[in-house]
Design a protein around this nucleic acid. Structure first.
Lengths: 191, 191
DNA sequence: GTCTATATTGGGATAGAC
DNA sequence: GTCTATCCCAATATAGAC
């Protein structure tokens, strides 16, 4: 399953021959030994995704970190956002697989949306309100959290996909800027 | 090529049989008629991507809109962000294909990064500085533009991928919030 | 430029010995 | 549980008539 996770994420399920999985698992490629463990590739995929969802759900880095009292809110939030970026790295193989399989297995995408995205936004809301909430955030925490999470995900995908930060803006700069924008305590454009 | 673009984006190149392209183009599936037009599927892929890149580059919605003087900066920026979201919709098939082919054709990803991402951030910077620039933005326009573009891309992908806005936050709310955060003229967390 | 027909291969899956 | 051997099919690609 470890091998399959890697190969699926890298090349997609369809493009990963059973023989390659056998080879990666130390079995002789081309022997049907794979089929003593799983009925077929589809069953393996389901097993891999399930295991990954469970693993991710209990990942400690997914939790909101205890907010230290002695640092300014912007800095505390930036630290949290860095942790979020690291957490997404854990999620990456699963995300890649689901992107590949989206059209074939829409139910899988649905499951992930419910458990990951909505929960992510919820956590983000809690996160934002917990720290000194700026007026804009307080005005519509859900929208603010959505912006925050979208930015993190978008940035993460850019980095992973292209192998380098967009426009040379590293994680440090990125999270700092995003945190500042969100914790700004005095907006005048509310009108 | 239109059919191929659709099918490639939906299912990936490997999972799209030549026969399906033939069928979609009005040819009889299974006849080799395809091969009178392209040497093989790889050549078709290259042609499709090239045509798409050119088409996207001259797309008028990619331009920064003339900023009206009589609306507040936050509102003007929100309008621009809505246009950006629409533009991404144009880009979606190309993005999907490149995501799928990333591992197989890293050079393609590179080409896109140069022409799309960097250009997108550049436009974003111009955009931000052009409108009433908040101190935070002025302080580091590149970082602010990266945050802005990342948020737009992340939000867009969530919507496209899951078929509905995350946490029920629609495009209107999203762009408004993001624009407000960016144009806030009075941040105190710069320190 | 499209068709019918076909050669060929790669990969999914099974049978049965060990 | 793994192997060798094999079946089968789906998909690539070509040949040659029309």
């Amino acid at each position: 399953m470890d091998v399959a996770l890697e190969l699926f994420a890298e090349n997609g399920v369809a493009a990963t021959p059973v023989t390659a999985i056998e080879a990666g698992a130390g079995l002789s490629a081309g022997s049907g030994s794979f089929y003593r463990h799983f009925k077929d590739k589809t069953e393996l995929l389901a097993a891999v995704v399930d295991r990954e969802m469970i693993r991710v759900k209990k990942d400690p880095t997914a939790q909101v970190m205890a907010a230290p009292q002695d640092v300014p809110p912007a800095q505390a939030l930036a630290t949290q956002l860095r942790a979020d970026l690291d957490f997404l790295k854990e999620l990456l193989p699963l995300m890649a697989i689901l992107m590949w399989e989206r059209s074939k297995a829409p139910n899988l995408a649905r499951k992930v949306q419910d458990t990951m995205v909505e929960r992510g936004v919820e956590l983000g809301i809690a996160d934002l309100l917990f720290r000194a909430p700026a007026p804009l955030v307080k005005d519509d925490p859900t929208a603010a959290a959505t912006v925050m999470m979208s930015a993190v995900v978008g940035y993460f995908l850019s980095v992973e996909y292209f192998g380098e930060p967009p426009a040379g803006v590293g994680p440090e700069k990125f999270t700092t800027m995003l945190a500042k924008l969100l914790t700004d305590p005095n907006p005048s454009s509310l009108n």
